[in-house]
Amino acid sequence: MIEIRFHGRGGQGSVIASKILAKAFFMEGKYVSSFPYFGVERRGAPVTAFTRVDEKPIRARYQIYQPDYVVVLDPSLLKTVNVLNGLKKEGWILLNTLKSPAEVQRILKHDNIATVDATSIAIKHRLGSQAAPIVNTAVLGAFARMSSLVKIETVMEAIRQSAPAKREENALAAKDAYESVIMGGA
């Protein structure tokens, strides 16, 4: 079983991202389960969401404590949330940031770090506003590349089927992020 944890802020679409990713895996024939940790899901407040993927039906009905992957939609969360909490040593963390993996490594003590400038990609495709871009779909494209667990074409199709508006723009944002994610392994 693969376990993925998303960190974002209310309004960025972390919960939707966890659902779209589950849909993509589902479209590739996997069993999936995705769920939010329902906290104070107000705009701007930290939000956590989870996705599980397996080859067999998923019976686990509890939170994810030792994820294989962590995805951070908002770099400012690093100051308030321990995003590495429980992440497996060989696991990967993906951050939406302008910084390179090597630069992030100075703050986050972890081997496998990937970064992508999802904010610029979202603004380029006019997703959300300049001040509050919606980065969730871009981040999923980067996840596809980082994890190699799901095809980018499937992620794009899952986005097209799920996005309430700007379907093609959202799918293209994922593709841009897929192509521009930087991976730094130790």
Binding site: K19, A22, K23, F26, Y31, V32, S33, S34, F35, P36, F38, I58, R61
Partner: peptide, 12 residues
């Protein structure tokens, strides 16, 4: 159905 554990959990 259990709150969130089912109500807000997506699956096939």
């Amino acid at each position: 159905e259990d709150a969130f554990i089912l109500s807000h959990t997506s699956e096939g």
